[in-house]
Simulated assay, not measured.
Amino acid sequence: MRLRNVKDSDKKISIHPKVVKNEKNYKGKWNKIFNNDNPIHIEIGMGKGKFITTLAKNNPNINYIGFEKFTKVLVRALKNLEEEDLRNVLVIRMDAEEILDVFQEGEIDRIYLNFSDPWPKDRHDKRRLTHHNFLEKYEKILSPDGRICFKTDNKDLFEFSLEEIEKYGWKVEKVTRDLHSNDNGEDNIMTEYEEKFVSMGIPISRLEAVKERLS
């Protein structure tokens, strides 16, 4: 479903206090921006923001940064941010390709990838957020025990991701191909997409990948 453009969306984003401007200037300084030394978790492709705002509300001692490259999606996410008085969440409008320009080595403790674009054609595999080119970027910004949490409704993308992550040498944990049929989904926070897919009976796959390299 295509989203309609929101009038003055660029202006709304440019003046919103939760949207970070000149984000590359804060590399290595994010704890100063949040004014604390709490862990930093990021979500790449935050969509309308339900997932990250719920996490921020439930975990006040963790700082959250959401990435969204599409203006018309991000402007809708801002409504979720406005509904809660959350001091531990910020958002950035940019492509994940530039993530190394935003964070220094070891600055992030967790990365969430929720229902990323599967880029189904083989020639587009490098655009998938679990391709080893992105894993290399994540490895640099994650802390020594940092991890990736990945969810998708796309079976092919999940199998590709599982193989790619294992091939890269990371430890894979908590693998499930039907999150909502077992206890693994007990503490799960659903995104807007996830709610839709679950209501349609589509199984959700999930895994966690630990930066610790296997010997």
Rank of each mutant, 00 (worst) to 15 (best):
E97N: 14
G106L: 03
D117G: 12
L90D: 09
R123C: 03
M94Q: 15
I99Q: 05
H124Q: 02
K121I: 04
I111L: 09
I108H: 02
R110S: 11
L113D: 04
D117F: 10
I92R: 13
G106F: 02
P118S: 03
D85C: 09
L113W: 03
D95G: 07
I111R: 10
L90R: 15
L100T: 08
I108R: 05
D117S: 14
I92G: 11
P120H: 03
L90F: 15
D109C: 11
A96N: 10
I92M: 13
I92K: 13
N88I: 02
I108S: 01
P118I: 01
E105L: 06
F103T: 06
G106E: 02
E97P: 05
M94I: 14
R110A: 11
N88M: 01
L90V: 11
P118R: 05
E107Y: 01
G106S: 09
D117P: 08
L90H: 13
S116P: 05
H124W: 00
Y112V: 09
R123F: 07
V89Q: 10
L100R: 08
N88V: 02
E97L: 13
K121M: 01
D95M: 07
P120V: 05
Y112F: 14
D85M: 08
I108L: 03
A96G: 14
V102G: 07
L86Q: 09
I99Y: 03
Y112Q: 11
N88F: 00
I111Q: 12
S116M: 07
N114Y: 08
V89E: 09
D117M: 12
D122M: 13
I111E: 09
V91T: 06
P118M: 01
I92D: 13
D109M: 13
K121F: 03
K121T: 01
D101H: 12
L90G: 09
V102F: 00
D101C: 04
Q104Y: 03
R93N: 12
S116A: 13
P120E: 02
D95L: 04
W119P: 01
P120N: 04
D122W: 14
D117A: 11
Y112E: 10
K121S: 07
N88S: 05
Y112R: 09
N88Y: 06
M94D: 15
Y112P: 05
V91M: 04
E98Q: 14
V91F: 01
V89P: 07
R87K: 15
M94E: 15
L100S: 10
R110F: 02
K121Q: 06
D85T: 12
R87A: 14
